[in-house]
């Protein structure tokens, strides 16, 4: 279980996190949504010990990330699929990660299979498409067989087959009792995949509820989608909004 409590952070005058508090429970896929600049990525980076919060804490099973021994065995994560050295092969990229956690090459081959990358394992990662890099990132996240997963925009750049694969994978991981946090802008995908949604805006949590509950209590229509709910919730929280093309006329 990942718990985030009262996180605050400022970047040179702009408030990035303003008392962010929520929990990611095991056995569920938790969607993490909010407008651009709402603090989703910063929160994930704080959870992973990459950024330091000015106040508050983010704990994995009660421990700060930086205190974990072999952290990839506790939390698997995918932040930026492009963040790899292009000259190294996919397999070697996973290999050094495995070695950093005391894992063997056999485990690397297992996750390569799981991510469907076996055929391209010995190709330079620099030549991969975004979708393939996402699969490589997922493989890295699964490497330590962790009870919790943190995935930032995993659907990005995936082909339709990949999206279906990703959806099934996330469901399966939750079904195995893992805690899965997925940030995404694709409400339709989350409506299909997520059990629970945390909606954030301007560095705080706006809503933290089961998807079913949100849909049920949505004002207006019976056929409300997660997208409608999201837009209603974040109406006042969006920092940048284009002029509605219909009204601009």
């Amino acid at each position: 279980m990942i718990t985030v409590h009262g996180l605050r952070k400022r970047f040179r005058g702009t408030v990035a996190l303003d008392g962010m508090t929520f929990a990611v429970r095991p056995g569920q896929v938790t969607g993490f949504v909010g407008p651009n600049g709402a603090g989703k990525s910063t929160t994930m980076r704080v959870i992973l010990g990459l950024d330091r919060a000015d106040a508050g804490d983010a704990l994995i099973d009660g421990h700060p990330y930086r205190g974990l021994r072999d952290p990839l065995r506790h939390v698997g994560s995918l932040l930026d699929a492009a963040a790899l050295q292009p000259g190294r092969t996919a397999r070697n990229h996973l290999l050094w990660l495995a070695h950093s956690q005391g894992l063997t090459a056999r485990r690397v081959d297992e996750v390569l299979d799981q991510a469907g990358l076996r055929a391209v394992a010995r190709r330079r990662a620099g030549g991969f498409s975004l979708g393939m890099r996402q699969r490589l990132g997922i493989a890295a996240a699964l490497l330590g067989d962790p009870p919790a997963l943190l995935l930032d925009e995993p659907f990005n750049g995936m082909d339709p087959e990949g999206i279906v694969w990703m959806r099934r994978l996330l469901r399966a991981l939750a079904a195995e009792g893992r805690a899965v946090l997925v940030s995404s802008h694709l409400m339709s995908e989350l409506q299909e995949t997520a059990d629970h949604v945390v909606v954030v805006g301007r560095g705080k949590v706006i809503a933290d509820a089961p998807v079913a509950h949100l849909l049920a209590t949505a004002p207006g229509a019976r056929r409300a989608t997660l997208e409608d709910v999201y837009l209603a919730l974040t109406r006042d929280e969006v920092e940048f909004r284009a002029v509605d093309p219909a009204r601009a006329r």
């Binding site: 980076r45 992973l48 010990g49 990459l50 990330y65 930086r66 205190g67 974990l68 952290p71 990839l72 994560s77 932040l79 930026d80 492009a82 963040a83 790899l84 050295q85 292009p86 990660l97 950093s100 956690q101 890295a140």
Partner: peptide
Amino acid sequence: GDEYSTGMVRVTLTALPR
């Protein structure tokens, strides 16, 4: 330096937070 320029340093620090 190469890790900084590719952003892979974040992967490294996620795997090895110390």
